[in-house]
Nucleic acid binder design. Structure first.
Lengths: 145, 145
DNA sequence: TTATATTTGCAACTTAGTTGCATTTAATAA
DNA sequence: TTATTAAATGCAACTAAGTTGCAAATATAA
């Protein structure tokens, strides 16, 4: 039995058909280390895909726990690849997101948990998200040249 | 010298003309304890205002430090009244926002500072925002009845 | 009370995302 | 290997959120 590429394995596990469109979109996510919007994806796939197809693929991937929405200050929704602890049933994206105000990319800081904060009486927490804005590593290094 | 209403004082301080539109929109913000979107405001003012006027007023108020944008999971931008430490020059909204998943309102938790988290090497922080999702006081109390 | 810069309203536009439906295709079964 | 079928794709048309340019109205200062 030949081993499937990682990308295909992800689709298989999610019970999704292995279509060229899905492989292409997943490949784009694997290529970039930051969260992607519809526009990012549309610009990155060589063979032009229909707008509706891209939006529907993103929704499907999200439902199946392959990607998660990233809270961001831009006007477009951005998604990032989930790590293995995400499931179809529950997204485990309790990590910090970092938005660079210079290059406008949003990174998942996977190894930083969101600190929990005490809430006023009567409020109960279900989920937290945290967005840190600043300058990313690449932009900081560029500034030193 | 007659004392101005608080609402007028806010506009005066911001060097904005005291127009009926601005007074109406500010009044709506003072009425509700949670963040408001264009739609919330449009639905709350009795005398119908032009869409463009509302959007432009929100932008002006934001620039003058009267309101601040609130990070939210909804598809519309929401704004909340700034407290006195905001200025025209810099928004001091370093407090937590709480979004109720039941009533969908977003509250500013003014007295809770956002904890700072260590970032990976090379990343520098400028500003953080934190959104806690859960059930608000009112909705929790309703559930007990 | 008039002059002027600001504010408002209208129309038309842009951008982000969705819905319905007909066609195509991946995966299963024969 | 081919036939079957449920799922996936593409097209057209639509909605929702927000913007731009310009002309008319108005708050304030002289």
């Amino acid at each position: 039995m030949k081993s499937l590429e990682e990308t295909d394995a992800l689709l298989k596990e999610a019970n999704l058909k292995l279509t060229p469109t899905r492989r292409r979109i997943l490949k784009v996510f694997r290529k970039y280390p930051f969260a992607l919007s519809y526009n990012d994806i549309n610009d990155s796939v060589k063979e032009k895909l229909d707008k509706v197809t891209i939006y529907r693929t993103l929704k499907t991937f999200e439902e199946k726990g392959i990607i998660h929405q990233v809270l961001d200050t831009s006007s477009q929704v951005k998604y990032a690849l989930c790590n293995s602890s995400c499931s179809k049933h529950e997204h485990q994206d309790a990590h910090i997101h970092f938005k660079c105000t210079s290059c406008h990319q949003t990174y998942c800081i996977e190894d930083r948990e969101i600190p929990s904060v005490p809430l006023p009486k009567g409020f109960t927490e279900v989920h937290s998200s945290m967005l840190v804005e600043g300058i990313c590593k690449d932009c900081n290094e560029l500034a030193l040249l």
